[in-house]
Design a protein around this nucleic acid. Structure first.
Lengths: 146, 146
DNA sequence: CTATTTTACCGGCAGATTCCCGGGGCGGCC
DNA sequence: GGCCGCCCCGGGAATCTGCCGGTAAAATAG
């Protein structure tokens, strides 16, 4: 799988606006609609583009408290955590990392008591370190050409 | 801004597939195309939906090394960091948090030397703690009804 | 309790978009 | 040269979007 400059332009545009029409996308990358369609289909089929998502403002939907929870997980039984990830949509992201804290989670809650409950559930699995998020730079850009 | 059950269904569907046609979206939430269009337009105008993005597989585009970098930032001059965020597309996300490490960054690099360069740049601003990411649960779900 | 306004929905139509063809230009290979 | 694969273009049918008026139920006012 090799990406040329045009592919990168397409990825950049689709990361900026994932709902853009293919004709408009073609206009921006100097390609006909059919050519750009074929390229996008190929990028999807190859798994370069894994999907398209609407971004939702957490505040606007009542999730006012965002936090990073680092979880130190003893042993190697990961099923309880995976089950928790399935059950709790408040856990937005879960990264397994090197270092003392095996997992880094991003968690959204409606309130402090809500966050407290979530952290308590996680604390049942291992020791946690929680930091409240003040603000986040909206990363509406994804990967770009290396 | 109050969201009813239908709005939540719409948000759920659009977070699962942000490029779905409005007619199909209407079918899934039991609404006509025009009704669902109006609701989506309202959600966009109110800022609930902030945009639509294509998700790109980092591996597939050569960004094989993902890391979490925590940055302890002395003082209150944040411009140097913001400039770095603008310049370095490798920084996918930047959260400002409570706690000893003021910032938590998610960084994608093509290789270890590449990551090393990035961390060195960040280390010029403050003291860093870096953890490599083994794997991440693809959070293709966003917020759901509280 | 009735009248009026507001809200949310539907259907339909014009225009735009997507999908699916066939066909052309170009470089590599026999 | 001749063939083949690759990538691109253009055209037409099917589909989707954007916009309109019209309707019914809920909210508001009197």
């Amino acid at each position: 799988m090799n990406l040329d400059t045009t592919d990168w332009s397409i990825l950049t545009e689709l990361q900026r606006d994932g709902r853009i029409a293919l004709t408009e996308l073609g206009r921006r990358v100097n390609l006909s609609a059919s050519a750009v369609t074929e390229r996008v289909r190929r990028l999807e089929a190859e798994g370069v583009i894994t999907g398209y998502r609407a971004d939702v403002d957490l505040m606007k939907v009542g999730l006012a408290v965002l936090a990073v929870v680092r979880l130190k997980y003893p042993g190697s039984r990961h099923e309880p955590l995976h089950r928790l990830l399935e059950e709790r949509p408040e856990i937005l992201e879960c990264l397994r990392t090197t270092g003392d804290d095996c997992y880094t989670l991003k968690v959204a809650a409606t309130s402090m008591p809500h966050l407290e409950r979530l952290v308590d559930e996680l604390a049942g699995l291992g020791s946690t370190t929680t930091n409240i998020v003040y603000s986040q730079t909206l990363s509406y850009r994804g990967p770009q050409a290396p």
